[in-house]
C-alpha cells in the first residue's frame, strides 16, 4: 500500500532534552495507525513534531513529496494534516461557531464543509453560539474533532481522544474514526486505552525512549499480549 506520511530519522528536543531519537514511522493510505507506549515515551512529541510545533533538528517528514520539517508550523495544516491535541485545546473563550470558523479558515474551506462536519456532530449545531469552554467534556471532544475535520484532511492526528470520556462518547469517537477511514482519511492515534487501540487500529507502533521499536499489524498484537506487556506494562 502507498505511504501517505513517511517519517525518517527524526530527532526532536524540548529545549536541550532530546525526546525523539531517529524516530521512524510510515503511515499508509486509509489506515488507522496507533502509537502505544508508556508515559513520556515520545508519542505526543511525535505528533507535535509532525505539526512543526516541536522543531525537528534532524530527519524528515515526507508528505506528498514535501518535507514538512522545512515548513513553518502554520504551513503544515495547509498540506492536509489536521491535529486534535491532547486535552482538546479548544479556544475556550470563543464560541463553537468561532472554533469551527478557525478550522475552516486553515485551508480556506467554506459552507459545504461546515455543513458536512456539523452533520457528523449534530449536537454542535444546537450549540453554535455557546462559549466552547462551557460545553461538556464529550461535546468539547466532538468540537475538537469537528474543528480538525473542517480542514478536510487526508491525515488526521488524534492525541488521546477518549481521555476522560464516558463510554457512549468513546463509542462515538471510535465510530467517527472508523467512518473517516472509509472516506480515505489516514489517522495516527495516540491512545492509552489498549482496548480502544485493538478495536480500531490497523497497525500498532510501539514507542519507547523516543524510538519506534516495532510496527505490527493489530492482529499480531491481539494474538500475543506480550507486546503490550513489554511496551506498555499492562495486560
Amino acid at each position: 500500500m502507498a505511504s501517505t506520511l513517511a517519517i525518517d530519522g527524526l530527532d526532536a528536543f524540548y529545549g536541550e532534552v532530546q525526546v525523539l531519537r531517529g524516530f521512524k514511522l510510515d503511515l499508509q493510505q486509509h489506515e488507522v495507525l496507533c502509537l502505544l507506549g508508556r508515559n513520556g515515551a515520545g508519542k505526543t512529541t511525535a505528533l507535535k513534531a509532525i505539526m512543526g510545533l516541536v522543531p525537528a533538528r534532524a530527519g524528515s517528514i515526507i508528505k506528498d513529496g514535501r518535507d514538512l520539517t522545512k515548513l513553518a508550523p502554520h504551513e503544515v495544516p495547509r498540506t492536509g494534516v489536521a491535529y486534535v491535541p491532547q486535552g482538546r485545546r479548544l479556544f475556550s473563550e470563543l464560541t463553537v461557531a468561532e472554533n469551527i470558523e478557525i478550522g475552516l479558515m486553515a485551508r480556506g474551506k467554506g459552507r459545504t464543509t461546515r455543513e458536512s462536519v456539523l452533520d457528523l456532530f449534530p449536537v454542535l449545531r444546537e450549540r453554535l453560539s455557546q462559549r466552547s469552554g462551557t460545553l461538556s467534556g464529550g461535546e468539547q471532544q466532538m468540537l475538537a474533532m469537528a474543528r480538525a475535520l473542517c480542514l478536510e484532511p487526508d491525515v488526521l492526528l488524534l492525541d488521546e481522544p477518549t481521555e476522560g470520556l464516558m463510554p457512549s462518547m468513546i463509542a462515538k469517537i471510535r465510530e467517527t474514526v472508523a467512518g473517516l477511514r472509509e472516506r480515505g482519511v489516514s489517522t495516527i492515534l495516540v491512545e492509552q486505552r489498549v482496548d480502544a487501540v485493538l478495536s480500531l487500529a490497523d497497525r500498532v507502533a510501539f514507542i519507547e525512549n523516543g524510538q519506534n521499536r516495532e510496527t505490527l499489524p493489530v492482529q499480531a498484537v491481539r494474538d500475543d499480549p506480550a507486546f503490550v506487556r513489554r511496551y506498555v506494562g499492562v495486560e
Binding site: 502554520h74 491535541p85 485545546r89 479556544f91 478557525i102 486553515a106
Partner: peptide, 14 residues
C-alpha cells in the same frame, strides 16, 4: 483572539 487564547493551537490551524 485565537492567538491570544492559545498560540500553539492557533499555529496548528494555519
Amino acid at each position: 483572539r485565537a492567538t491570544q487564547y492559545d498560540r500553539e493551537t492557533a499555529q496548528a490551524f494555519g
